[in-house]
Structures are given as structure tokens and as C-alpha cells.
């Protein structure tokens, strides 16, 4: 059953209050009364009223003040003014401020009933208009929430101060690297994100990363897990309708992140890369046993036991060698690496 509508009647004449209460209670409303403005405002504050009927002329706080106060705190409440014969112009004034209607004194129970019915009808129409229509909830999903909150997986609701975040040099670094030239061609179609086997676990999908690179959101991009999640399968690259080499852009971003410790706190991949680089620079070739041992010793010593069992089985099947093999001309390779380092890399 619907909740009964609640009405507050305010008049300095007790007889008016009582008769109104009698008429309206019979019509199914919950009614409370107050004999002056002060009492009215107190009662109004405590209760949950839909309609207020107030006499315009009262000693102390008059009807006009009650109207103003009610409309200020709860604009959705309808206020009806009770007016004597000589106060019609004031009633018109009250209507301008926001009163719903006025009831000229003296009134018969029938007249009061009619005016109240009109107000009730108008209210129910308004309520129906405000209620969510079919499909309205769906539309809401696409609207930016009115309150801006931190929501790491959705960059558009993040509270970003654009002037601080913009780093134009970031975009140029990406564009000047092989594969990154076409990042500006991205039309945000999302084919990359839809194709990526790992986008579901990324802080930002590849499509978002492209947009963020263009917006210069350097720190957000380089500290995200997205760049280390990329498994380099190139599906995004071959499907991109604008031929943007997204996998290569991920490598550019990994390189940039590698240069700043701030970005490497959570990811394990940079550590693996470091050990790999160290081994290759030493022998000229990779040695999986040493790489695995060093990496797991640092990140997850328990895993060594598990892997050593597998390693033993592989070794018994003559699948791998225990000792690394150094290339003959390792000095030539090291000279080359040093020179490339001295050139400052690609950026």
C-alpha cells in the first residue's frame, strides 16, 4: 500500500486548524497542525510533509516567511496559502515565490477538498515524470558520474589535473621510435583491446594506452601493469585498421619505464630483463638455468624447488646443458653494446 500523504496545517485560529484536520483526515491524509509560524517550522523540520497549508496573516513569523523557509529547505514540498478577503494581492505575491495555490477564507469543506485534489494530481504527475523510464538506466552507464572519484581502471573518471599531467615530450618520444610513428592515427576503435588475450587483466587496455600516450599522461602509462602484461603476440598489430604497431609501442613504453625506478615497484618483468641482459652481455648467449635460478632466488625462492624437479627431468632427457657457453668473440659484442649504450639508446 502506498504511503499516506502528509499535510501540515498552520493557522493562528484553532478552529480553522481543527476543521481542516477533520476534513483532510477523512480524505485519507495524515494531518498535523501548528498554531503559529515558529511552531510550524519546528514541526516541519521534524516531520516528512508533502503539503503545507499556511495562513498568510499570523502574528510573529507570518505565512510568507514560513513559505520561504519551507521552499528553501525542501523545494519539492507544495505550499498552499490561506488568505482573507483583503490579502489576495499578497497571495499572488506568494504564488510568485513558489506557493502552489491559495485558499480564500472562509472556505467550505468541498472547496478545500477540490484545491487539495488539484495539488495532489499535479504532484503525482511530476513524480511519474521524474521516475526512471525504460532504458534510462542503460543511458546512465554512459554518463560521466556527477561525483568524480578515483577509479583506476577507467581513466575518464580519474581526477587528473591536466596541466600537471601533460608531458608533450612523452608523445614525441613514442612517435620518434620505430613502430610508434603512427600513434596519432588511432581512432579509438578498440580492435586492439578486443583482440588482446590479456587486456582483461590490464590497468588500461591497449586502446586506452594509445589515448593516454597522446594526452601526455606519462606517469599513469609508465606505472601501469599494461605494458608488462603484453605477451608480444602481435595480434593487435596485425588487426589494427590504421596499421599502428601497438606491440612495438609497448616496447617503447617498457624501455622508458626501465629508466625510472618509480615505475618498476610492482612488476617482476623488469627484473627478469635485467638478469637476462646481464647474462647475454657476459656470455653473448642466454643461459636459461642461470636466468631462472637468479630470478626465482630473488622473487620466489619456493618456486626453485618446483622448477628444479622439472629441470632434473629435462636434464635426464638431455634437453638442456648445465653450463653456459660463451661466444668466441665476446669482446667484439661487448664493444658494440658499450657503443650502443654510449649513443644513449634510441631516445
Amino acid at each position: 500500500m502506498e504511503k499516506k500523504m502528509s499535510i501540515l496545517v498552520v493557522d493562528d485560529e484553532p478552529i480553522v486548524c481543527d476543521s481542516c484536520k477533520k476534513i483532510l483526515t477523512e480524505k485519507g491524509f495524515t494531518v498535523e497542525t501548528a498554531l503559529n509560524g515558529e511552531e510550524a517550522l519546528k514541526t516541519f523540520k521534524k516531520g516528512d510533509f508533502d503539503i503545507v497549508i499556511v495562513d498568510l496573516k499570523m502574528p510573529g513569523i507570518d505565512g510568507m516567511e514560513v513559505l520561504r523557509s519551507v521552499k528553501k529547505s525542501k523545494p519539492e514540498v507544495d505550499v498552499l496559502m490561506i488568505t482573507g478577503y483583503g490579502t489576495i494581492p499578497s497571495a499572488v505575491e506568494a504564488m510568485k515565490i513558489g506557493a502552489a495555490d491559495y485558499v480564500p477564507k472562509p472556505f467550505t469543506p468541498k472547496e478545500l477538498g477540490q484545491i487539495i485534489s488539484q495539488v495532489v494530481e499535479k504532484r503525482s504527475k511530476l513524480v511519474a515524470e521524474k521516475a526512471p523510464k525504460k532504458g534510462a538506466i542503460l543511458l546512465d552507464v554512459f554518463k560521466k558520474p556527477p561525483k568524480v572519484v578515483y577509479h583506476p581502471e577507467r581513466v575518464w573518471v580519474k581526477d587528473i589535473k591536466i596541466e600537471e599531467a601533460l608531458d608533450e615530450n612523452f608523445l614525441n618520444q613514442v612517435r620518434s621510435t620505430p613502430g610508434g610513428e603512427r600513434v596519432m592515427d588511432c581512432m579509438q576503435c578498440g580492435t586492439c583491446s578486443g583482440s588482446c588475450p590479456l587486456s582483461y587483466r590490464m590497468d588500461y587496455t591497449p586502446r586506452e594506452i594509445n589515448a593516454m600516450v597522446r594526452a601526455g599522461l606519462r606517469d599513469e602509462v609508465l606505472s601501469s601493469n599494461s605494458i608488462w602484461m603484453c605477451s608480444s603476440c602481435y595480434l593487435c598489430t596485425v588487426r589494427c585498421p590504421r596499421q599502428i604497431k601497438i606491440t612495438d609501442i609497448m616496447y617503447v613504453l617498457k624501455n622508458l619505464a626501465m629508466k625510472d625506478k618509480r615505475f618498476l615497484k610492482k612488476a617482476k618483468s623488469p627484473l627478469l630483463s635485467r638478469y637476462f641482459v646481464d647474462i647475454v652481455n657476459r656470455y653473448g648467449r642466454n643461459h636459461e638455468l642461470e636466468l631462472t635460478l637468479r630470478f626465482f632466488l630473488r622473487t620466489n625462492p619456493k618456486a626453485i624447488l618446483k622448477h628444479s624437479f622439472m629441470g632434473l627431468r629435462l636434464f635426464l632427457r638431455k634437453r638442456f646443458t648445465l653450463f653456459p657457453k660463451r661466444i668466441k668473440n665476446i669482446n667484439q659484442l661487448r664493444t658494440m653494446v658499450r657503443k650502443a649504450e654510449a649513443l644513449g639508446g634510441l631516445r
Partner: peptide, 16 residues
């Protein structure tokens, strides 16, 4: 011959 660098070295520094 030497290591190609694979995906791991490429993540560290592309030029090398």
C-alpha cells in the same frame, strides 16, 4: 652467433 635479445632484451633497451 649471439643471442637475438628476444622479447626480454628488447624490453630493456631497443637499440642494444
Amino acid at each position: 652467433w649471439n643471442c637475438c635479445g628476444a622479447t626480454v632484451y628488447l624490453s630493456y633497451e631497443e637499440l642494444i
